[in-house]
Amino acid sequence: MAYSDNDRFPRFGKAARVVHFTHLISFFVLFFTGMSLYFNFLSPLNLLFGGASSAKLIHRIAACIFFFGPILGICLNPKGFFLVIREITHWRKEDFQFIVTFLHKFFGQPHEVAPQGYLNGGQKLNVYLLGFGFLGLSITGFVLWFPQYVPISFALWCYPLHSLLAPCLTAAVLGHGYLGSFHPGSGASWEAIWGGTLSRAFAEHHHARWAQEVDSQLGRTRR
């Protein structure tokens, strides 16, 4: 197969993309209902959801989608999940080099990008942040919902943890969303989660090592 500048690099399957957006929507629903229930001065926001009682119900429904969505995604594509697990448990020198230059990237300053694999260093870190945030918020959230089924001493810790993890995860999501959608340097990665593929320019820039692997797998040789 001939090499072309217009080549696309297959990134995410349909299941991953559907789960990502379901998860994203449920996150925002959780965020707004949670804020309206948690902060007294934001109580008027409850009206958007039909009052505090409905906001609470919607928060719980969204929590189920938030929690079970990714689990369904793993069941639909276990291979993809284990690929991510393998990636985040294998760190290379280049991954750390990527993270070191992260602030330069975030604020649009010139910097060198070490050749990255399927997940670059920043994405690996992001998987940890979002993964642990997801697990922590889900566990503490379900305890807040059903405190009667756990020891009271454990339930009491879940209140401060839930209210601390929520803004921390939101901070991570804000950064992730900005970099993946609006940042002029990396916003093109939106194409991967929306359409499933990346352009050659983006793949070679952000995932040079992976791009080479894909080219070689697909037999795309340079002219």
Partner: peptide, 12 residues
């Protein structure tokens, strides 16, 4: 596109 062979790329 820089047409390099997997070396370090510049930019953001």
């Amino acid at each position: 596109l820089h047409h390099h062979e997997g070396g370090k790329s510049h930019g953001v």
